[in-house]
Design a protein around this nucleic acid. Structure first.
Lengths: 215, 215
DNA sequence: CGTATACTTGATCGTTATCAAGGCCTGTGG
DNA sequence: CCACAGGCCTTGATAACGATCAAGTATACG
């Protein structure tokens, strides 16, 4: 019921879902680039730095974070394999990008990326679609933060991280929970304690099962 | 101090600030269009409808809202004069757009707008900038909802609605508060009671003055 | 084996939501 | 002109949810 509730009010986080299928074009821009590997916790780019590169995630999860003078931290989003970051049209990065666990990336110069997209009739709408997905995702976060409780938030995240099954969504899905509680909490606008408690409750009521930090 | 605090953690809501100066290009696309007037509370377009038009706000404030089956409502954003909506690259509108008070708009067909932007070297980066501002704005909301208290939220909104003074920001700025408490609350992720109380407190401690629903 | 890091759990407090009532303004009809 | 209804806003009392403070327990790492 918990999960059902979360689903019913979850208009989106479609982004990840829609990704795998239809974006060979943009992705192909990166295919010639060498794969770079970043270790757990390494910073890929910094908030406010000139946005020189655009990245495609090949493996692992990238966390975007904004840190404030008072130490509080917000995670506007995560990027999963097949997604891009550094793409948002602006001169500077909109947050710190950091590797959660090991991450493999391909990069393109920003100018090269923009010119390629700018020139190609086929890529332009595709890039627009990507931006649109980012907008929808941002809006979903707004909804999540504006009017969902801790349980709904955690469910949302778990569903977003769940491998996107095409049609049949059997009840038994295993989620590689490759992020720490701190990341969960920052992303969901909760404290680690609350995130932890909520996870415990979800396990307690049978909504999820733990298998060594997995569900 | 309240206000100062709010300002220090407010990385953005720059959008409105940056608007008035540098966007004659996109705006000029609309200049030939007739002005349409919508009355207080009228719906301009609906969530999920095919996005047939792009709008420029000429006067008044437009509210974008998402309503859920359980009646709860979220306001992802407001659009002020000089801003555009319906532009986000996607087939459908991302929310209900409604007039707060009287609103004057110009509209362009979506296809016309996209083609014009697509064709023109000068408009493309300008449109990208606009999308970027929307992203920054969305991110600012995320921060606001994730880790600000009621007082900071209300201050943020007031500052966002404050007429953007170029250089000198004298302490005495009058804000046309053309929206109801309900709108404030939905935008800020608060209840109307809390919004009202917070306004009362701000008046009480001298941060703002009331002049018949103005500050 | 010991330290560090991350996670869990408990107790308490504070902020905000919720429920409830009352005040103010506007417009309408007698 | 007054009475009344309906919004919208304010204020109060109470309660719930999550933050905070504080141990305590796993797990990883050198």
């Amino acid at each position: 019921m918990l999960v059902a509730n979360a689903v019913s009010r979850l208009p989106s986080r479609i982004p990840a879902a829609a990704n795998d299928q239809a974006r060979p074009g943009l992705s192909s821009l990166f295919s010639r680039q060498p794969v770079e590997t970043f270790g757990r916790g390494e910073t890929i780019c910094r908030d406010g730095d000139p946005a020189l590169h655009v990245f495609e995630v090949a493996a692992g999860i990238v966390r975007v974070a904004k840190v404030f003078s008072d130490g509080s931290r917000v995670i506007p989003g995560f990027f999963q394999p097949g997604e891009f970051f550094g793409t948002s049209p602006g001169e500077r990065y909109l947050g710190d990008a950091e590797a959660i666990g090991e991450v493999k990336l391909r990069r393109l110069s920003r100018n090269g990326f923009r010119q390629a997209v700018d020139r190609c009739e086929r890529l332009r709408p595709e890039f627009a679609d990507w931006l649109c997905r980012e907008m929808v995702s941002a809006q979903a976060r707004t909804v999540l933060l504006a009017c969902k409780n801790a349980e709904e938030r955690v469910c949302d995240l778990l569903l977003a991280l769940a491998p996107q099954v095409g049609g049949a969504d059997g009840p038994a899905r295993a989620i590689e929970l490759s992020m720490s509680r701190v990341n969960m909490a920052d992303y969901l606008g909760l404290t680690i304690e609350t995130a932890s408690r909520t996870m415990t409750n979800l396990i307690g009521c049978g909504a999820i099962r733990s298998a060594g930090w997995r569900s």
